[in-house]
Design a protein around this nucleic acid. Structure first.
Length: 165
DNA sequence: CAATAGATCATCT
DNA sequence: GATGATCTATTGC
């Protein structure tokens, strides 16, 4: 525990339900995908490649599958804590500019799987000020199926998105 | 610079 | 037993 951290979400990807072969929920309810089919506003956190964890927000009503993968965060507070959790990141831009990076930087793990994002220490908040930015849409990254579906959303020109810099 | 290999294990077949 | 919603270090131009 190195302390709290906060940031602005600058890159996401949508994963649908049974029609989306790239989505974990594609095969239906299993022990792992249970929370994706649960109520919205909760965290779905899974372990991948034996090493990394990725954070999703459940986005569909209970009984339906659908979630949003958080792919990159622009660090805003607790930056020294994030740097202690990610000593390999040489630049601020490398701290949380990827799905596996941001969970490490923020200290997020499977222990928070299923957490209520409105009440738990892991929570989301709306923007207080309306910033001027454009949302860019591209195909998703790092998947084999439905790879050309335009479901990746990022803040155009932001240098904290994955693959920038 | 770009390309690639290695790390490492929960989940599903 | 194979695979994967990844990251990093290393190799090769």
């Amino acid at each position: 525990m190195y302390g709290k951290g906060a940031g602005r979400i600058v890159e996401t990807e949508a994963y649908l339900g049974v029609d989306d072969r790239a989505a974990h929920a594609w095969r239906g309810v299993t022990e792992r995908t249970r929370v994706i089919f649960g109520p919205p506003g909760h965290a779905y956190i899974y372990f991948i490649y034996g090493m990394y964890e990725c954070l999703n927000f459940v986005a569909e009503p209970e009984g339906q599958a659908g979630c949003v993968l958080i792919r990159a965060v622009e660090p805003l507070a607790g930056i020294t804590a994030m740097q202690r959790r990610r000593p390999t990141a040489k630049r601020i831009e490398d701290l949380a500019s990827g799905p596996g990076k941001l969970t490490r930087a923020m200290g997020i793990s499977r222990k928070q799987n299923g957490a209520d994002l409105t009440t738990s220490p892991l929570h989301v908040r709306g923007m207080r000020e309306q910033a001027a930015f454009k949302v860019e849409v591209t195909s998703r990254i790092g998947i084999q199926h439905c790879a050309d579906w335009p479901l990746r959303f990022l803040i155009a020109g932001n240098r904290f998105v994955s693959g920038a810099g």
